[in-house]
Nucleic acid binder design. Structure first.
Lengths: 331, 331
DNA sequence: AAAAATCCTGAAAACGATTGCATAAATTAA
DNA sequence: TTAATTTATGCAATCGTTTTCAGGATTTTT
């Protein structure tokens, strides 16, 4: 694959590079005959502008960056598909980075993307990210950032999230309608916004149906499998809930696994609900029902907002927060 | 985040950009005092060389590209983790692209990566890729390419694959040892190298145990869920095998799903084996046992070969084919 | 026929970094 | 004292592209 530059074309046609450049961009200054000549030759030799030279010149790249905790997660890989479809259809490329739930990696990703002059980024925060100072450094100097899924509390950013409250509410209500009264709620650390919203949904559903919220049935749990296992075991040993509702995509599998390993000690109809996009949950036994987030759409919407912002002339001052509906997948 | 260039440093210290550049690269030509001065100032203002300018100058990027059919697949996301760890530890970045099993997308990915001057690529071919003409175009002009998992027949490339024969052999033998005699083999199209190798493992295991190969028990199947369903149904309706062995990561789930939906019509102890890195297979019921490929290691090894090649002076002439062991995950 | 307007085209600078070459200043040798 | 050598630094070209400015050639207006 030979690389052709403007200079090569100029030399071959006995023109200057400036003329060739202008001809290819269909400048009014160039003679029609010259334009045609250049266009045909460029096509023949399969000329493609060097994107690196353009990036250097324009200080942008027609590429956007994505930072997610991990790609080995259906939710995020579906979101990435949404992002890619939106971006590609508008002529942008997508650079994917994984933070692996590490703040350090997240910072490195950010720096890398910024240095590589991506035009903006989409980010779902790592589990270890407590504040967004490292992001503000960039966003303050006019670097476009859109958050999705795991978003910061701070205002002043575009955000795309799922309706966590309603999702949790619907799942809890479903369990109540199945006749369950002691529904265990296992969720992520309270520092995350998603945790609070989901917890609120859970509580409101109980209240609506006249069930007193029992704080013993609510446990916060980190992303470590052992911790999840201990949490579930503790529930089974002491509180004996009649249903489980795990409110974190990462947690769902760990908890479910511990739950399954002790299924013989529980009534066969003990339902287990997760808040996850795991796409094989219906194949599990006992059943794993889930609250599903519109991951693809979240990615696509977030990308759309970012690209709209990039392509708009004026600086955005009113930030959007898009809230997308979840739905239940009952297995 | 303010962007500092060599020029800024030069201006601030009243030096020329060349002196600053040389001082930062610790050139012997520069006075120690000047070096220290420059180093300290650069550190203070957090100077970082513009990678785009370097790419333009050097025609390389210290980044490698990865093309996989899709990232929403445990095998590939694990492989990518291996690739990233190897690459990052050696100071390279990784650009991930998905072909979505489309030859067109694969070509676009290739062109994009090449234009962006990645120093080389790692690729697992799309399901629609029948030949590698599009790849030869690039590799022939000295663009480093290493294949992994789905590799072409052609020699003249570095390749990293799993020992498909042994994996299939071991799985088949295991089923035989469980007393199964009519083992259905559902596999991908015969055009893929993995198909042939796995089929061979299946046959040899039967032969070793004195079981005649019954061609009625072997079916080739594409990646369409409906096709998988039809294949399984057909087996259950007519051949009534006493075990299933699906030999393609993509196929496993589709086939298993069809199998599960009819489990009541089959003996409860009908085993189902897949050739997949699905990491939740042990949670399924009926059991889904699998042949697992060392995905992380495949990625890491492939990346190592690519980077070694990039960093070696001389052109490689003897191409390696690394074959990694698989293992059985019995559920 | 001279002046003005129009039409094309090219030279050069810019983006940020590296590097071969030139050179001024300081030191040493003759 | 002059020439040769060393030391430390700067100039300018390069990578590929876009774009401002300038100017030559042609045509139109007076």
């Amino acid at each position: 694959m030979e690389v052709i530059t403007l200079k090569d074309i100029a030399k071959a046609l006995n023109l200057s590079t400036s003329t060739v450049s202008r001809a290819l961009r269909d400048s009014y200054e160039i003679n029609e005959k010259t334009k045609k000549l250049v266009a045909e030759y460029a096509k023949k030799v399969n000329y493609r502008p060097n994107p690196i030279a353009l990036s250097l010149k324009d200080n942008k790249s027609r590429a956007i960056g994505v930072i997610v905790p991990e790609i080995a997660n259906n939710f995020f890989s579906q979101a990435i598909n949404g992002i890619e479809d939106e971006a590609y259809s508008r002529g942008y490329h997508v650079v994917i980075c994984q933070s692996h739930e590490s703040l350090e990696r997240e910072k490195e990703n950010l720096r890398h993307l910024f240095e590589r002059r991506v035009d903006g980024i989409l980010i779902s925060l790592s589990g270890k990210t407590k504040d967004i100072k490292h992001i503000l450094e960039y966003s303050e100097s006019n670097f476009a950032v859109v958050f999705f899924d795991r978003v910061p509390e701070s205002s002043g950013f575009h955000k795309v999230v799922a309706d966590n409250f309603s999702g949790a509410f619907a799942a809890t209500e479903y369990l109540i309608q199945q006749g369950k009264k002691r529904i265990a709620h296992i969720t992520s650390p309270l520092t995350l916004s998603i945790t609070k919203e989901r917890l609120e949904g859970y509580k409101k559903a109980l209240e609506k149906h006249g069930i007193v919220v029992d704080n013993e049935l609510i446990k916060y749990c980190g992303f470590d499998p052992e911790e999840a296992k201990a949490t579930i075991n503790d529930f089974i040993n002491t509180q004996k809930p009649d249903a489980f509702f795990t409110c974190s995509d990462r947690l769902a599998l760990h908890c479910y696994e511990a739950f399954q390993s002790r299924k013989d000690e529980m009534p066969a109809d003990t339902p287990f609900f997760g808040f996850t996009n795991l796409n094989v949950s219906h194949l599990f036994s006992p059943k794993l029902s889930t609250v599903v987030q519109p991951a693809y759409e979240m990615g696509a919407r977030a990308a759309k907002i970012l690209l709209d912002q990039l392509e708009s002339k004026r600086k955005v001052k009113d930030f959007e927060k898009i809230v997308l509906e979840t739905y239940l997948k009952i297995s």
